[in-house]
Nucleic acid binder design. Structure first.
Length: 357
DNA sequence: AAATCGGGGCC
DNA sequence: GGCCCAGATTT
């Protein structure tokens, strides 16, 4: 392995300066109350691609409702998705519950300390495995996320594109070399806190950095140009007509999305893909796809929703039907009160206020 | 290796 | 509008 980048750094001094800073400045976060592996696990799953401030209220509610692996293992999946509602990347919730059930069945409820067993659990990838092993079990294993790549791209002046999947292995190698063997838990968490509070993506506060004298990018004055990351391509746009369909009893039609793909297992108001279906074909399309005879009214609002790879433009319309039962197994008629128990994606949550008017 | 999979907050 | 976020899984 090419270790020329390590020749300019005093590893033990780096560790010492970093850990001293962390002891003084570590953030007070709910999942740091103790090192219980289940709490660490839940927090790490929630924190994937998600900001700390967003996660905190979700984490607190989740731990209150599912304090141990046993409560989560026995829970109804729809209830778990309801707890996850608004947090995004819903496969995280389904995979977490699948994995927790595996831990209860195969490991008597004890989260494995063995890297192989832990990494084989659903939704536990290289990062989460390293985070749990280091934070909960104090094993000197790398946990390479965006923070770690940003910090070490600067400290070691690494110009490899961090958007490439192969690049992560390079960082894992360097973290293995540099991680504190005495306190790997604090080391990994310290790098994350440093990346979140000082070694930030834009305008890093190098003057407050505990390891500035160890940082190659700071010495060279190039911290603003690291890390290197290839641009993401633009999202594809899709148009839909969403229908708030009410029947004579005042109930509304909702639809469960498929078990895989975007927003899997969540509920929504029926949508017509408007890119594919022209206006004159709306009625026959609804009859064909849902078995519903619907009268459609004028638009009441429009909603734009940006996903990572798609942009939805949804024209929302009230509609009525004479049906009282549904033929399609994906559909249900629900009252406004009942509807609140179902997990909805955010763009459809924004339609709910228009039901009451 | 690239695409999929949410949503919010920042500039 | 683009970018980033305590990434994993599928293609």
């Amino acid at each position: 392995m090419n270790d020329k980048r390590l020749e300019h750094i005093n590893i033990s001094a780096f560790q010492e300066d970093l850990l001293r800073w962390y002891e003084e400045n570590k953030r007070d976060l709910p999942w740091r109350e103790n090192n219980d592996a289940y709490r660490v696990w839940v927090s790490e799953i929630m924190l994937q691609q998600t900001k700390v401030d967003t996660v905190i209220p979700y984490f607190n509610r989740f731990m209150e409702k599912y304090p141990t692996v046993y409560e989560l293992a026995e829970a109804d999946q729809q209830d778990v998705l309801k707890q996850w509602e608004g947090l995004g990347y819903y496969s995280r919730a389904r995979n977490l519950q699948t994995a927790v059930r595996e831990v209860v069945e195969a490991y008597d409820g004890k989260i494995p300390e063995d890297p192989k067993q832990l990494g084989d659990l659903k939704g536990v990838g290289p990062y989460t495995k390293g985070a749990i092993l280091s934070i909960a079990y104090n094993q000197p294993i790398p946990a390479v996320d965006g923070n770690v790549m940003r910090v070490f791209s600067r400290v070691l002046h690494i110009e490899e594109d961090i958007a490439q999947s192969s690049t992560k292995k390079l960082f894992e190698h360097y973290v293995e070399e540099m991680i504190s063997k005495e306190d790997p838990s604090s080391f990994n968490q310290a790098i994350m806190d440093l990346g979140a509070t000082i070694c930030t993506p834009k305008q890093p506060m190098c003057m407050f950095c505990p390891v500035m004298e160890h940082c190659q990018a700071y010495v060279e004055g190039i911290q603003d140009r690291l890390p290197v990351k290839k641009k993401a391509k633009k999202q594809q746009k899709k148009k839909y007509i969403a229908l708030l369909i009410q029947n004579k009893e005042g109930k509304y039609v909702i639809e469960k999305r498929p078990d895989s793909g975007l927003l899997a297992g969540l509920w929504q108001f029926p949508m017509i893909p408007a890119d594919d279906i022209v206006k004159k074909d709306w009625q026959p399309w609804l009859q064909e796809n849902y078995g519903l005879d619907v009268e459609i009214n004028e638009s009441c609002t429009s909603i734009k929703h940006v996903f990572s790879h798609i942009i939805w433009n949804v024209d929302v319309r009230k509609a009525s039907t004479n049906e009282e039962t549904v033929q399609d197994s994906r559909l249900e008629f629900v009252s406004l009160e009942e509807l609140k128990k179902y997990p909805f994606p955010v763009p459809h949550q924004k339609m709910i206020p228009f039901l009451e008017e």
